[in-house]
């Protein structure tokens, strides 16, 4: 189906753009030193109607995976926020009984983790600390959280 293949171009372009952006958590970080600290840390998060339980409230800087499961009866979402309230990462539409991952590149600093059952309001918040692991953190933005190193 040559015409279909040709029209797949926009999506293809999107995927290439993705690769260029370097968003894949474990592979696409050529700058990351192999060995200690290069692996992805996983923090499990359990969101319920009135609680947001994290398996750890501190993690070393680098690539972090928040594995968020919804134990409540309403749709939930999870945010990692910087001290100034801007969003580091967010995963939404976690239906009851589902579990979804949020992958972020986080530099050292103080953050806030928030579960938002019902996907509205401030949500259930708690502090989250990222310590300096020495791993360089790739960032797209004129990052507020990484001291450009």
């Amino acid at each position: 189906m040559p015409s279909a293949a040709r029209a797949a171009l926009p999506l293809g372009v999107g995927l290439v753009l993705l690769a260029a952006v370097g968003g894949c958590a474990s592979h696409a970080s050529p700058g990351a030193a192999p060995g200690a600290g290069a692996t992805t840390r996983t923090i499990t998060v359990t969101s319920s109607a009135d609680a947001c339980r994290l398996s750890a409230t501190t993690a070393p800087s680098g690539s972090l995976t928040f594995s968020v499961s919804n134990a409540g009866g309403d749709v939930t979402e999870f945010y990692l926020l910087r001290a100034d309230g801007t969003v580091v990462g967010e995963v939404e539409d976690i239906g009851p009984g589902l579990s979804r991952d949020l992958v972020v590149q986080a530099g050292p600093g103080s953050y806030t983790a928030a579960c938002k059952p019902g996907m509205t309001g401030e949500g259930v918040r708690q502090p989250f600390t990222v310590t300096d692991s020495g791993t360089p953190v790739p960032s797209l933005q004129s990052s507020t959280e990484t001291d450009a190193s």
Partner: peptide, 17 residues
């Protein structure tokens, strides 16, 4: 797969599309 998609990449893809 072995790797997840970073948040920025997902938003960039969503926004662009």
């Amino acid at each position: 797969g072995p790797s997840g998609l970073g948040f920025e990449a997902q938003e960039a893809l969503g926004g662009t599309l």
